[in-house]
Design a protein around this nucleic acid. Structure first.
Lengths: 142, 142
DNA sequence: TATTAAAGGAGAATTATTCTTATTTGAAAA
DNA sequence: TTTTCAAATAAGAATAATTCTCCTTTAATA
């Protein structure tokens, strides 16, 4: 992801391009592990040692408001963020805080077809997100 | 749900039966709307005006530890709790905090069959929970 | 280059939750 | 039934994540 692609995302949404916003959006994309605000700050401080905590939270809110990132649902009272905006699923590790994206068009089709047939009364579905909960098997790598 | 059924749940898990635990577990079951700690306190204070906030949190932790209730994943930094322990799905309203249970064995079968066939490399699935996100249509009720 | 609404910084405030310590109590044992 | 004591509760302080306030700085337009 080139620097210009990131600023274009902001411009497309009518958001001012600032170094802080660039750094935060870039951090979430680069980290690619559904980071917390603290993870993001830690990453950014390498190049922006003076960025304020309040700014990070305000920028995150602005990015969520403008659909450039999404909040990730967790069982912890700490918010995490995801820069992948296409509809996708999440793999949750049940003995760590690891969350992985899971993209699977065959599954999307299966679910879409299922709920086209079997409607939920008085409810309009906007998105279907499967939470796949379990354990990663040890394999030497991550 | 009779009072004795609730105390039996505690006894089965080897937990002491106390009025506070009874009240809290009963509240979550009766409220049946994935309540927050605050919702629970508010409900309980009608009959137990002196229950302590710290007790509520400690009891909730104990109930989660002992698999009598589950934490519910949300995008807010406030925890919610669910007394339905069978594997099931959740309907999330996108313009309110309403969360409904969705039980559907046909869907469970479909998903189970799908992931029996299509494994996720180096991952052992323990539970599959679909988040159905959308809007409830106005119908006069609720 | 000047203008100004929007954005950022710093630290205080808030909110949900956890911790600490003294007191009380459920339930097993006598 | 009474005693015993580990476990549970109450009350309030402490903590952690997040939000707010207010003042300063800056990006983007004129």
């Amino acid at each position: 992801m080139k620097i210009e692609e990131i600023s274009n995302k902001l411009i497309e949404k009518g958001l001012r391009v600032t170094p802080q916003r660039m750094a935060i959006l870039e951090a979430i994309i680069k980290l690619n592990n559904h980071p917390t605000a603290e993870n993001i700050i830690e990453y950014i401080r390498k190049n922006h040692p003076h960025i304020s905590l309040a700014t990070v939270y305000k920028v995150l809110d602005a990015l969520v408001e403008n659909s450039l990132i999404k909040k990730v649902k967790t069982e912890k009272d700490i918010m995490r963020y995801d820069a992948l905006m296409e509809s996708h699923h999440h793999i949750y590790c049940s003995d760590s805080d690891r969350i992985e994206d899971y993209q699977d068009n065959e599954l999307n089709e299966l679910l879409k077809k299922y709920f086209d047939k079997k409607e939920i009364p008085n409810f309009k579905i906007e998105d279907l997100k499967l939470h796949i909960i379990g354990r990663f098997l040890k394999t030497g790598k991550k």
